[in-house]
Design a protein around this nucleic acid. Structure first.
Length: 597
RNA sequence: GGGGACGUAGCUCAAUUGGUUAGAGUACCGGACUGUCGAUCCGGUGGUUGCGGGUUCGAGUCCCGUCGUCCUCGCCA
């Protein structure tokens, strides 16, 4: 061992002990007759004191040089304890200094107070990962995995690895494809999730499976979305949705307690139906850390002359509002113009109407003149208007009012600082619709995936029955939501081929096509498939939220940029012509753009 | 694919309406200093203002294109 202690563990009780430390030079402070360095590793900082004898070597040190110190622990002189660091009561009096490795001049110092540009951080990721904040996050990530693994183990789960090279399926996200050399012209797909394999494992009798599974989706990125991400994936047999919700609620409680040392809010995680979430928040992953819920005014709008409201209400649209309490003075006409342009550009809305409550408690604003006194009173009562309230309206299709008001609700909450950043607010969203109508392709599409079981009480709406109504069918699906982010989603699966056929039929999948795509699963379902259900949690998002971060890249050791590039390694990159020849692949681009020279 | 923000020294940033030789902090190099801890003090090196065009007497600043990073809409069963 090149060290006997880490840089974070020495305390006053070790006074007089001989120790050997190794780490990175964090800073050098040269006072001519006496010199100090802060030595850093991932456990902390320890101050090393040098006398004149080692001065020349110490002066040659640079930040991020790797050194080994042999010395003696001593208490710092009275009155100059450094209370900012846990090791601040002691220092190590150096007797020997060994330079283990010199560094080149670093592009940035991990200990610097300012964080470099994202591009620089990603290019020199090893330096970025030396930053204490990153080390804290990756350690948190490890803790979450460890607690989850232990929890699943205690509950009888078996961790099974499923293939990375799988079969491409046309539904869902775009696949990352891997060309086959031995079967030229054919491709594997990297898994979007272990979905089909874990269902097969249920049929195979592994009634409690879990995996910390890497997943891939070739879609555009976001602050909370990477092309390569990790799921805490599980599946159980002989269970219903209550069992899955219970199992995961237990995990959440454990994670909160063992990782953050906290209890979950309330006795248990509350639940909300999808329809209720859309009515109250306009989104299926509502942030419940603040109010400002959506208020429906469609019935009032049907009675008014104001054409913007009346027209929408009469043609089946909705008029809804949010009330930003006490915010009237904080939003100038210019600010409101900004909000208006934002909803037009971002959500394709026609705009946002607004009213403010003036000092007399009256609703005022450009649209106020379109209402009678009585109608204004009705609106005021409905939205709970009080002095200085700022009320924003969206009059549009239900879908657009959801997008607009959810967007405004989140934006205003951030701007008005309504969110307690320390709160961890979980909820379950249940009873999702089974199908979505795709207006472009003029067909029903599965909202989750085509193996999701409908709620038994909605089965009579399936095709081929007198009261067939696919839009009314709800799924046995459940999403776990934390602080306005979807952190998990799962369903009870269909385990009988009769229901499965009906669902495929509704999706416009012929038996032939279905067999071609999922034949192995359909076949397997015939050989004693137990009732089963499962869920997958987004590990990266969980870490992000447990760590109080606002970006998923900061939870991943080696993340990709918005264009899915790895700035450190330079991937993706051209390959040699020989490699392409072996795969029988020819690009339609100019050779110099794609082929390694 | 669409919209927006940004790109100036190794790093973090500044530079008035388009106007002198593009500045500061830090890092780096040299020097001073025996209790500092983001050490301090003195001096110095360091720039094709992402790249390519254009407008102008004059462009870091304005216009067009392009590349990159971030945010976002579409997309993500």
């Amino acid at each position: 061992m090149l060290r006997s202690k880490t840089c974070g563990e020495i305390r006053a009780e070790h006074q007089g002990q001989a120790v050997t430390l190794a780490g990175w030079v964090d800073s050098v402070r040269d006072h001519s007759g006496i010199l100090f360095i802060n030595l850093r590793d991932r456990y902390g900082l320890t101050q090393i004191v040098f006398s004149q004898s080692l001065a020349d070597t110490v002066r040659s040190l640079h930040p991020e040089d790797v050194v080994q110190i042999e010395g003696t622990v001593q208490l710092r002189p009275e009155g100059i304890v450094n209370k900012k660091i846990p090791t601040g009561e002691i220092e190590v009096k150096a007797e020997k200094l060994t330079i283990l490795n010199r560094t080149a001049v670093v592009p940035f110092q991990p200990s610097a107070p300012e964080v470099p540009a994202e591009e620089t951080r990603l290019k020199y990721r090893y330096l970025d990962l030396r930053r204490p904040a990153m080390q804290k996050t990756l350690t948190l990530r490890h803790r979450i995995c460890k607690v989850a693994r232990d929890y699943f183990d205690e509950n009888g789960f078996v961790e099974v690895e499923t293939p990375m090279l799988g079969k491409s399926t046309p539904e869902g996200a775009r696949d990352y494809l891997v060309p086959s050399r031995v079967a030229q012209g054919q491709f594997y797909a990297l898994p979007q999730s272990p979905q089909l394999y874990k269902q097969i494992l249920m049929i195979a009798g592994y009634d409690r499976y879990f995996q910390i599974a890497r997943c891939f989706r070739d879609e555009d990125l976001r602050a909370d979305r990477q092309p390569e991400f990790t799921q805490l994936d599980l599946e159980m047999s002989f269970v219903d949705s209550e069992d899955i919700i219970g199992m995961i609620s237990g995990l959440v409680e454990r994670l909160m307690k063992e990782v953050l040392g906290r209890e979950i809010k309330g006795d248990k995680i509350p639940r909300m139906c999808y329809d209720e979430a859309m009515e109250r928040f306009g989104h299926d992953a509502p942030d419940l850390r603040f109010g400002m819920e959506l208020i429906d005014l469609t019935d009032i709008a049907k009675e008014v002359e104001f054409r913007v409201f009346r027209g929408v209400a009469d043609s089946g649209g909705r008029i809804r509002a949010i009330n930003a309490k006490g915010a009237a003075e904080k939003y100038s006409r210019k600010d409101i113009d900004g909000l208006n342009n934002w909803v037009i550009e971002q959500f394709g809305a026609k705009g946002v109407a607004w009213l403010k409550v003036d000092t007399d408690g009256k609703l005022a604003g450009p649209i106020a003149k379109n209402f009678t006194e009585e109608q204004l009173d009705k609106i005021a009562k409905r939205v709970g208007a009080e002095k200085n309230d700022f009320i924003l309206f969206s009059a549009d299709t239900f879908s657009v009012t959801c997008k607009v008001l959810n967007g405004l609700r989140r934006r205003l909450a951030a701007e008005l600082k309504l969110i307690n950043p320390n709160e961890m607010n979980f909820c379950w969203i249940v009873k999702f619709p089974m199908f979505d109508w795709d207006a472009e392709e003029k067909r029903w599409v599965a909202m989750h995936h085509p193996f999701t079981a409908p709620l038994t009480q909605d089965l009579h709406h399936l095709a081929g029955t007198p009261d067939s109504n696919p839009g009314a069918i709800r799924a046995q699906a459940y999403d776990l939501v934390l602080n306005g982010f979807e952190v998990g989603g799962g369903t009870v699966r269909i385990h009988d081929s009769e229901t499965q056929s009906k669902v495929f039929d509704l999706l416009g999948l012929s038996l032939e096509t279905a067999k071609q795509q999922f034949g192995f699963l359909l076949e397997a379902l015939q050989f004693g498939a137990p009732p089963h259900a499962g869920i997958a949690l987004g590990l990266d998002r969980l870490v992000m939220l447990f760590g109080g971060l606002d970006n998923i890249r900061d939870c991943i050791a080696f993340p990709k940029t918005a264009k899915a590039a790895d700035l450190m390694t330079g991937a993706p990159s051209p390959v040699a012509t020989k490699q392409l020849d072996e795969l029988a692949i020819k690009t339609t681009l100019k050779p110099n753009d794609t082929v390694a020279r």
